[in-house]
Amino acid sequence: MTQIKLCGLTREEDIAAVNRWRPDYIGFVFANSRRQVTPEQARHLKAGLDPHIKSVGVFTNALVQSIIELCETGVIEVVQLHGNETEEYIRALKQKTTCFVIKAIRVQSTEQILQAQKLSCDLLLLDTYQKGLYGGSGKTFDRALIPTLHKPFFLAGGLESGNIAQVVEECHPFGVDVSSGAETDGLKDETKIKRIIEAIRSIG
């Protein structure tokens, strides 16, 4: 079953919606973004989250210790690195936490993805490259660039209910990561969340 991650939750209404429709993961963005939340906000939202749904913290070039604190206090269970983090950074992080680590790659070439799978992260996240942005562009990339990978990966970039099932059947990702495709006017939309999850679940 393809895993579903809904990223960029910021409100109690978002938590209520995901508790009803049950994606596998949700994301709290701690990086600079219009969806950014503070550790205190994330802690409050996590307290209301169904325990069967894993919480992911999204970071861009953050201090390792700040990530560790969120892991140790249970605010997040998975770390997603969306910046220029190196293999040394990932290794240092994994030495200090048992949380799974996802490394996001802003795809520009097949060779770039093949190199990325050598990193010691647990999963990759393949997203759209857009100059000046670390993610959340809502735009697609050429998925023909994705090679056969032995490391599991999430797929992001321009996914929404109308295209997500076809993309999964073409690319066979471990999971999909949706943010702007589940929003209306910049806020999470429960109807869109429902449609995305139903589209994925329908393909088994």
Results as ranks from 00 to 15, higher is better:
29 V>L: 14
170 E>N: 15
16 A>W: 08
27 G>C: 09
103 K>R: 14
55 S>M: 11
25 Y>D: 07
84 N>C: 10
51 P>S: 12
126 L>S: 02
190 E>K: 00
96 K>W: 08
58 V>Y: 10
90 I>Y: 07
47 A>M: 10
138 G>D: 12
131 K>T: 03
131 K>G: 01
201 R>I: 00
5 K>L: 02
79 V>P: 01
127 D>S: 01
16 A>M: 09
171 C>I: 13
65 Q>Y: 10
141 F>P: 05
51 P>I: 09
119 L>E: 15
28 F>P: 04
155 L>D: 03
38 T>D: 09
169 E>A: 15
155 L>R: 06
128 T>P: 00
147 P>E: 08
185 D>A: 15
199 A>C: 03
98 T>Q: 11
7 C>W: 01
204 G>R: 13
70 L>S: 05
184 T>A: 14
83 G>M: 12
23 P>R: 02
14 D>L: 02
179 S>G: 08
77 E>M: 10
90 I>D: 04
91 R>I: 05
183 E>I: 11
189 D>L: 00
129 Y>Q: 09
126 L>F: 04
200 I>P: 01
45 L>C: 03
147 P>N: 07
19 N>I: 02
61 N>V: 05
20 R>Y: 00
97 T>R: 15
15 I>M: 02
28 F>R: 08
113 I>T: 15
98 T>C: 06
111 E>P: 07
106 R>H: 14
202 S>C: 09
81 L>V: 05
153 F>G: 01
171 C>F: 12
104 A>C: 09
46 K>C: 07
87 E>H: 11
75 V>L: 14
154 F>W: 08
151 K>E: 07
193 I>Y: 05
14 D>G: 02
42 A>S: 04
122 D>A: 09
159 L>R: 00
115 Q>V: 12
82 H>K: 05
119 L>V: 13
135 G>E: 01
40 E>K: 15
52 H>C: 11
2 T>M: 03
78 V>C: 10
36 Q>K: 14
116 A>E: 04
159 L>T: 00
117 Q>P: 06
110 T>H: 11
68 I>H: 13
47 A>E: 13
107 V>S: 00
13 E>S: 15
